[in-house]
């Protein structure tokens, strides 16, 4: 802790089998590179480096913004469930990214259901304030993983073509606790943005949505 206002905190969680460390996908380059943009485009007093925290660490609650990805392989233990639940109910804000297709969705839906069983997952409409918190966003772009982005053409990682989705979990007062980016990979866009061959469309959208999620998470 050094007194900065914002820490891009990445969730360290338990996973299944050989993807047990799925939490560290794109880590730490995506985080650090994204923070460069955050610090450049906004006046957030953001810590410049990666900042991973375990879900069962009591210190987690000191960081009200949390990023987790590849949750299709998430397998939370009871301590993590309790840690994440208390974090979200106290006022924490969780952003989910980079998981694809029905199978991974079902895994995440199961895991988050263990954390917040009483709260349903719903679509976030395009007119939601999240999409105008800093940049005006009028469509949800599917950001492919870096290989596909470099090749052009197919943007999905699903078995069949699939659409990106922006979904969320709201509390009783209608406040957004969890933002779920499904069938899209914002993290790759942040990670590879400096490459001249990386398509601007994807990186632009990923940065816009990422910054919007931070601004929204810090004000709502």
């Amino acid at each position: 802790m050094n007194g900065r206002e914002f820490y891009f905190t990445r969730a360290i969680y338990s996973g299944h089998g050989w993807r047990g460390n799925s939490w560290e996908t794109d880590f730490p380059k995506a985080d650090v590179q994204f923070l460069v943009g955050v610090r450049r485009y906004t006046n957030i007093d953001a810590y410049e480096y990666e900042h991973p925290v375990r879900l069962d660490d009591p210190e987690l609650r000191r960081f009200p913004f949390l990023y987790a990805l590849e949750v299709g392989y998430m397998a939370l233990n009871p301590a993590e469930i309790e840690g994440l639940r208390s974090y979200l109910l106290a006022g924490g804000f969780l952003v989910i990214d980079d998981f694809w297709d029905v199978g991974e969705w079902q895994n995440f839906e199961y895991e988050i259901g263990r954390v917040l069983p009483e709260y349903p997952i719903v679509d976030i409409p395009l007119d939601h304030p999240l999409l105008s918190a800093f940049y005006e966003i009028d469509e949800i772009v599917q950001v492919p993983q870096v290989g596909l982005a470099a090749r052009g053409g197919r943007t999905w990682e699903c078995y069949m073509p699939c659409q990106p989705a922006l979904r969320g979990i709201f509390d009783e007062q209608g406040r957004l606790m969890v933002v779920i980016n499904w069938n899209t990979d914002l993290g790759d866009a942040w990670e590879w943005v400096e490459q001249p061959w990386y398509p601007f469309t994807y990186s632009s959208f990923a940065y816009k949505l990422g910054i919007n999620m931070i601004i929204y998470g810090m004000s709502h």
Partner: peptide
């Protein structure tokens, strides 16, 4: 500047 104080005060 964006601050968590805003969110939690609200």
């Amino acid at each position: 500047e964006p601050r968590f104080e805003v969110k939690f005060l609200r």
